[in-house]
Design a binder for these strands. Structure first.
Lengths: 181, 181
DNA sequence: CGCAGATGATTAACATGTTAATGGTCTGCC
DNA sequence: GGCAGACCATTAACATGTTAATCATCTGCG
């Protein structure tokens, strides 16, 4: 490598990129779960949805998207498929006809019951490797980052999940200069 | 919420999922950069590639993929476009005709020069908000996770990047039970 | 030398991420 | 009551993630 390490360069080296490190960490962790999920025909996202729904009776799409970090547009494609497979049910809210309420169907509960144990086992293995204390440190640090960067102003009103779907603030990237495509 | 907090439930609540927290953190951080990148017509990935290439004279695809955390298959689609736009050049390695060597074209260097300053400014703002010390703690913790979970055996030989592309270990998810699609 | 197996890039096929546009529904306000 | 603007879900269009298959090249070994 042609570049020294310290705080010298005009731009910190690529390796010291926070998004990159977060991505690497996530990929390495997910690598432990993916084979298991795929063995059950589930993508990461589908499992997040099943898992989120399993914790409650039902959820509207906005909440589901917020909890799973899945964009509404993506949900609109994923949910119909899962419904066709009999894993979940969708209905329109009576009070607000715009909203779609989603709930896990028996078959979805069963799938969760089938997948969860091994999933927990994998998580337990990861906990063993990293160590409970250090893992707690990881959560603390991540919560910290999330809390600090969530909206310049304090958000987090009652019940609101902080994670925020994809880019609820990034929006409006400007039609902009497309480098002449 | 119908579930208590402690270590009680049959499965830890969704919020305490390491991959989820890593994803949330990453999304929140990226949200700060995306508008800027999009204003220059760049996707996250394209910027990672430009940035990685700017640090060196040239790289073969494998290395580039490893450093940017982009799957070779994705690179095969992204690179031709960037080449068409005159941002980079590709050539076949003389020593090994299988390998493709990529390097930044003048126009790519210029793009980097245009984008980097504001990008660094955004990073500086994030550093201010989180605080230098806490940010160092974040890196330390993430490096720790990455190192610990990188292959059960210690990797990280000379020069090797640890991050590992997408799933270099997750592979072979079994053709498997597709839930009868 | 020559071949079998390993390796690197590409491509295809499908799933999701991302943005913008569309259409139905609701809400506040006149 | 009725309308304008906000809100939610869906869809389209494009970019990327992900896996498997394919093709070319290379390497080790007989």
């Amino acid at each position: 490598m042609t570049r020294a390490r310290g705080r010298a360069g005009p731009m910190r080296p690529f390796e010291r990129s926070l998004p990159m490190q977060l991505m690497r960490a996530r990929e390495i962790v997910m690598a432990r779960f993916r084979p298991h999920l795929h063995a059950h025909g589930l993508t990461d996202q589908q499992w997040r949805i099943v898992r989120a729904l399993n914790e409650v009776a039902e959820l509207d799409m906005m909440e589901l998207g917020a909890r799973c970090c899945i964009h509404p547009a993506s949900l609109s494609r994923i949910l119909p498929r899962l419904e066709d497979e009999g894993l979940l049910r969708r209905r329109t809210s009576r009070e607000d006809q715009r909203r779609v309420i989603v709930s896990l169907a028996p078959r979805g509960r069963q799938l969760f019951a089938d997948v969860a144990p091994e999933s927990e086992a994998i998580y337990a293995a990861i906990t063993r490797e990293i160590g409970t204390e250090r893992l707690e440190a990881v959560y603390a640090v991540l919560d910290d980052v999330i809390r600090t960067l969530s909206g310049t102003s304090p958000q987090r009103e009652a019940g609101k999940i902080t994670g925020v779907p994809k880019n609820f603030a990034a929006k409006r990237a400007m039609p902009s200069a497309k480098r002449g495509r």
